[in-house]
Write a protein that binds this DNA or RNA. Structure first.
Length: 221
DNA sequence: ATATCGATTATCT
DNA sequence: GATAATCGATATG
C-alpha cells in the first residue's frame, strides 16, 4: 500500500488501456461515451491536490489523412504531430483566437486519427470548474454551461496546449487521463459533426441520448 | 426561441 | 492575408 491512496482509488475510476485507443476513431468515439475524464494536479496554493472528474457524453471522430475536416488531412506539421504518434495521447489545439479543444489520438503511430471531446457531465470538482470558467454556481441551471461544448470543457479543466498537448491519457500520473467507473449505461445517438464546413454530412458525432450536458440545441428523441 | 455577429491569434497558403 | 473542430452577446419574433 502506498502512503497516499492512488488517484484511481480516490476517484473510483480505473484507467483505460492503450489498446482501447489503438482502433478506428469511430470505435473509440463510440466506446468513450460514458467513460470519465479526470484531471489531477497540485494546487497552486498548496492546499491539496485538485481533482476534477466528468463523464464523457459527446464526442466526434476525426479520421486522419483521408478526412477533409481533420487537422491531419494536410499531413504532419508541428501543430498536429501528436496525431501521427502512438494512440492515447492528448492533442490540444487553439482555435478562433479564444479556445482550446481536447482530442485523444487513436489508431497507431504513423496513422493519424483522433476523437474530439465535445461535452462532459461534471462529477467531481464542480466549484473548481466554475471558478475556471469565471462563473459562480447559483443553481442547477448553471451546470451545463460548465462543460457543454469543446471550448467550455477545456476551460473548466484548465486545459491548454502548453500544459497538456502530448500528455499520456492512459497514465494517471500525467494529470489528464481517461478511466472507467463501470457505472454508465446509456443509449447512443449518431449525427453529423458540428461546426465544420468540409465533410459536414458524415455521421461521426456520438452522443448520449437525452443527456442534458450535450452541446447544441435540445433535441427531442 | 432562434439567428447573426464580433472577438482574437496560431497556423498555413 | 485568410481561415478556423467556438463562445457569448445582441437583436429579433
Amino acid at each position: 500500500m502506498s502512503a497516499q491512496p492512488s488517484l484511481a482509488a480516490s476517484t473510483g475510476v480505473q484507467p483505460l488501456q492503450r489498446d482501447f485507443f489503438a482502433r478506428h476513431p469511430r470505435r473509440v468515439a463510440r466506446d468513450l461515451l460514458g467513460k470519465v475524464l479526470v484531471r489531477s494536479r497540485n494546487s497552486k496554493n498548496g492546499v491539496g491536490p485538485v481533482v476534477l472528474a466528468a463523464r464523457i457524453v459527446e464526442v466526434e471522430a476525426y479520421l486522419g489523412e483521408n478526412d477533409p475536416a481533420a487537422h491531419a488531412f494536410a499531413g504532419k506539421t508541428a501543430r498536429n504531430s501528436v496525431l501521427f504518434g502512438p494512440p492515447g495521447y492528448a492533442y490540444v489545439y487553439f482555435v478562433y483566437g479564444n479556445h482550446y479543444c481536447l482530442n485523444v489520438s487513436c489508431q497507431r503511430e504513423g496513422k493519424a486519427g483522433c476523437v474530439l471531446f465535445r461535452a462532459l457531465e461534471p462529477l467531481i470538482g464542480l466549484e473548481t470548474m466554475a471558478r475556471a470558467r469565471g462563473t459562480v454556481l447559483k443553481g442547477p441551471r448553471d451546470l451545463p454551461k460548465l462543460t457543454s461544448g469543446p471550448g467550455r470543457l477545456a476551460e473548466a479543466f484548465g486545459i491548454t496546449r502548453a500544459r497538456d498537448n502530448g500528455s499520456d491519457m492512459v497514465s494517471p500520473q500525467s494529470g489528464l487521463w481517461i478511466g472507467d467507473d463501470g457505472l454508465y449505461r446509456g443509449r447512443v445517438l449518431i449525427t453529423p459533426r458540428i461546426g465544420i464546413t468540409k465533410a459536414a454530412d458524415q455521421p461521426l458525432r456520438y452522443l448520449v441520448a437525452g443527456n442534458a450536458f450535450v452541446s447544441g440545441r435540445k433535441r427531442v428523441t
